[in-house]
């Protein structure tokens, strides 16, 4: 997994609540058996019209946001399905950080497995960043995961919370399966005890 330590880039505002996984990546793109290549389909139904042409006023189609690395969005971002295609599409587009007042649990988890940092902040702070993001190419945010801070274009700094284990994994780009397998003897012990007590499992 790609490491995440510092990120500086344009933030795109997407001021909608309940952005669900069907909006992030509609089901016709879930038929892939690969992880890559989903970026062009990110937000497909908002981004393209019925003929596949770009809709000019959708934020990621505007020239100043085409290379956005950060997304600022409304409450309950990523609700809906467990599809990891959602963070795959976001990362493949080039966005490595999503900021919102809250996230759906499964989506939030999935971000960390793909080198994306989801940051939950109180509504008033998201509103401020949303205003910053509305300034187009001047909306450069600086995110420092180690220090847990976001620096805005006017120099103001906001702190954010993150679970220490997830932070550690992101900072070091760790392979979680490998980490867990270091505890294999404990898993084996657990299984042996279980086999004894509840053999039907």
């Amino acid at each position: 997994m790609e490491k995440f330590d510092k990120l500086t880039g344009v933030a795109a505002p997407l001021n909608l609540i309940n952005i669900d996984t069907d909006m992030i990546i509609p089901k016709q793109f879930l038929k892939t058996i690969k992880r890559s290549g989903l970026g062009v389909h990110l937000f497909d139904e908002m981004r393209y019209d019925d003929d596949g042409q770009e809709i000019a006023d959708f934020v990621l189609n505007k020239p100043q946001y085409r290379d956005a690395k950060i997304l600022v969005a409304g409450d309950n971002f990523g609700c809906g399905s467990s599809r990891e295609h959602a963070p795959w599409a976001i990362a493949d587009f080039g966005i490595r950080c999503v900021i919102a007042p809250s996230f759906a649990d499964i989506f939030y988890n999935n971000c960390f497995k793909n080198g994306i940092l989801p940051i939950a902040l109180p509504q008033d702070q998201v509103d401020l960043l949303m205003d910053d993001a509305a300034r187009g190419a001047n909306a450069i945010l600086e995110i420092d995961l180690e220090a847990q801070t976001i620096k805005g274009p006017d120099g103001g700094t906001i702190s954010f919370e993150i679970d220490p284990f997830r932070k550690h994994c992101l900072l070091n780009g760790l392979d979680e399966v490998g980490l867990t397998l270091q505890q294999e003897d404990k898993i084996t012990q657990f299984e042996a005890a279980r086999e004894n007590a509840q053999p039907w499992l």
């Binding site: 467990s82 988890n109 999935n110 497995k113 979680e176 399966v177 867990t180």
Partner: peptide, 11 residues
């Protein structure tokens, strides 16, 4: 998610 599916399959 799929990464966790892999995690469960393996561990």
């Amino acid at each position: 998610g799929t990464s966790e599916v892999e995690h469960v399959l393996a561990t």
